[in-house]
Every structure is written in C-alpha cells, then in structure tokens.
C-alpha cells in the first residue's frame, strides 16, 4: 500500500552544507557513476553526444546568485530527493510502486510494477524524480541503499556515493531521527532548515545555511546588524590593508 508509515525506525538522510559547497558537481557525477550500475541501473542518457543530450540524474547542482551588489554571493545548491516524511510522491502512486520504508524512511520505486504515469514526479515540489524514457518507469535517488548496507565494501565507504566523493566535505549522511547523531547535532548547531516548509512535506534532508561573512576587520563574524550599519563597515575598511596582503590577513584571522 502507498500509505505512508506512521513513523519510521530511523530517518536516514543527508545534511548539505551550503557554506562549504564549491559547486564542483563531483557528487552529481559520482552519483550517476554509482547508480548507473546500482539498484536503479541503468541511468540512461538520450542523445548523449548530440545537441540535445539529456538523461536521468538523481543529484543536480544548481548555482544561485544571492543578494545584491557588494553583499551578493554565489551559493552552490546540490538538489536530490529529500526522502520526505510526508512524501506525497508515495501517496499519489496508483500502483504501490512508490513506497517509503518503515525501517529507515528511504523512499524507493519498485520498477517491476511502476506503470510510468509520472504522477509522482508531479507531486514532488523539489523535482527530485526523473523519468526513464527507455525503461518506461520512474527513477529516483535511493540514498545508495546498495552502498550503505553493503557488507562487501569497507565500512568507511558505506555512505551514499555523493557523500563519499565530496572533496569539500559539504555532504553528510546519518540518522536525522536520532537527536544524538552527528548530523542532528550539526543541524542543531548551524540552524539547518527544510526546503519549502510551507508545503508541509517534512523533508528529512536538511540544508545548512551559508555562514554570515566575516567583517573586513577580521574581528569575528559580521552579524546582519553590523552589515546594515554602513558607518562601521566603511570605518573598518579604511584601517585595514587591502589587496593580496589584506586577503592573507583576513584568511589567517578566520
């Protein structure tokens, strides 16, 4: 049945640190690499070398420009299935192909009974599900169930492919249902948040916001209040060396 479990034993998911992500797309590439031979294999590409290359990816990195002028910054934003607690994609499925596992909360598709109606992809506000035109079924992030429980690989590697490959350590995997877990602590400390909370999907994955910028004087984190006081910022600017030395100075004083 596509009824959602009333509660799941664990809430396995990802915590993505938007402060650290450098937008290298390694997570997306390694995800594709692993999963095209994994549980939902293959992840097809249509016209891969032509003008209209398209294909199924479970993880995509979007780059946004946030804010204006001197205050603007680039935020790289990896986006994949959030394994929501109120996963409407599961509830709308007419066949029972989509399901949320009661033991760990992972949302999966049974490709043997999926009819390819695509309704689940319409029900996902995050655009996490991608349709496989070749197989005629819906595919999605499996949280690498074929890695995280895989006893044939070293224990350190039993994390999703995207987490294992991130060179900046911006991606973390763990049980978000356990308040004592590393990921839960990280969410607590850094103010991790849900995407589009107003739609009430209760995503398990959390995003950690970019940290406030340090002031030019290197005197600790610049708060929003400080940023809104141009006098103080301008004053600090005149006192500090700029150019390469200033950059070194700011870097070292972090």
């Amino acid at each position: 049945m596509t009824d959602l479990p009333t509660r799941t034993g664990r809430k396995l998911g990802l915590v993505i640190d938007l402060d650290i992500c450098v937008g290298c797309h390694a997570c997306a590439v390694n995800c594709k690499e692993w999963n095209t031979g994994g549980h939902s294999a293959p992840l097809p590409d249509t016209d891969p070398f032509g003008a209209h290359a398209a294909g199924v990816w479970f993880n995509r990195v979007h780059s946004f420009e946030v804010g204006d002028g001197a205050e603007s910054r680039t935020v790289h934003f990896p986006r994949s299935c959030l394994h929501c607690e109120n996963a409407a994609c599961v509830e709308v499925c007419p066949t029972g192909a989509s399901y949320k596992r009661a033991e760990d909360g992972i949302v999966l598709v049974n490709e043997d009974i999926c009819i390819g109606c695509k309704l689940c992809s319409w029900a996902c506000p995050y655009g996490a599900r991608e349709y496989d035109e070749d197989a005629g079924v819906m595919k999605k992030c499996t949280l690498c169930i074929d890695r995280i429980y895989n006893e044939n690989i070293p224990e350190a590697q039993r994390v999703p492919a995207c987490v294992s490959t991130c060179p900046a350590n911006a991606r973390h995997f763990g049980d978000l249902g356990d308040p004592e877990s590393d990921v839960s602590r990280m969410v607590e400390e850094r103010g991790g948040y849900d995407l589009i909370p107003e739609l009430r999907y209760a995503p398990v994955n959390k995003y950690l916001p970019p940290r406030p910028r340090r002031g030019p004087g290197g005197d600790g984190p610049r708060t929003l209040a400080a940023a809104q006081t141009p006098g103080r910022a301008a004053e600090a600017e005149t006192e500090e060396p700029d150019g390469f030395l200033g950059w070194i100075d700011r870097l070292l004083s972090r």
Binding site: A53, W57, V61, V66
Partner: peptide, 18 residues
C-alpha cells in the same frame, strides 16, 4: 532554496546545459 534571508535569489548556472 531557503536563502531569502541573504537577499534576492537568482539562478546563475543551471545544473544541465540541455
């Protein structure tokens, strides 16, 4: 994106070219 507190959010680079 949940980034509204930092200012207006505009797409700089999409993840895919096609």
């Amino acid at each position: 994106t949940g980034l509204g507190s930092l200012g207006k959010v505009r797409l700089l680079d999409p993840p895919n070219t096609q």
